[in-house]
Design a protein around this nucleic acid. Structure first.
Lengths: 111, 111
DNA sequence: AGCAAATGCAACCCACAGGTTGCAGTCACT
DNA sequence: AGTGACTGCAACCTGTGGGTTGCATTTGCT
């Protein structure tokens, strides 16, 4: 599936305008032009954002009549969430272990 | 909770160097200088990244002796993961409802 | 058929993020 | 006490991401 690297997906989510777009698309399919009518940016700008989002799998496009409608892919966001959660847990685990070592009075250096 | 807005946190995670840093810090506390010795960027650059990460709560700093050590905060990543998951689910739910409407014979499409 | 509307592509602009170097100050070791 | 190491701050450089305008083309609707 060539899942994009974490930083890339996060970068795609690291823009306010893109979140605006995603929010709208989360409510239902919309075309770039339709989004441009709602949001305070040009259609072309929207188009670029949609391309970015599509490359990381956060939206999918579908030709509907003469327009191309996009829709937010919740599953991708879910997949990202799981990845982040996994990493976060590993951080906590290691940190906990380190703290235990530090606090264990067993064979510690007594200064 | 002063939780930074989603786009901001994601933006912080949207940089490869920052992930490098986080990965190292996930393994244990390190100072900016120590990170600079390991990573191919200057200490000052690392410092800026650490500041960004600290502002969104992804790392915490602690004065240890004459150096400042940083550590990755897994809980923050977990919190972000939960937020994203929640949003992703809502997208899927709405999309499912829309598809159901579309496929249902146009009989009970009352508002 | 004809017009309005949607898309695709390209050139262009500008702010800023990521990076660098340099310097000054401070604090821990020997 | 002296020295090396770590930090903080500032100035500076550059690529590019987000945005715009303009134009050509396609395509649905009446």
């Amino acid at each position: 599936m060539t899942a994009p690297a974490l930083p890339v997906v996060c970068a795609a989510l690291g823009d306010a305008t893109r979140w605006e777009i995603l929010t709208r698309l989360g409510e239902g399919p919309m075309s770039a032009s339709a989004l441009a009518r709602v949001l305070p940016v040009s259609r072309q700008a929207i188009g670029k954002h949609l391309e970015v989002l599509r490359e990381v799998g956060l939206v999918e496009s579908e030709q509907r009549g003469r327009e191309v409608v996009y829709v937010a892919v919740g599953a991708r966001l879910g997949a990202l969430a799981r990845e982040l959660d996994r990493i976060g847990r590993s951080w906590q685990t290691r940190l906990l272990r380190i703290k235990e070592l530090a606090e264990s009075p067993a064979s510690d250096t007594a200064d």
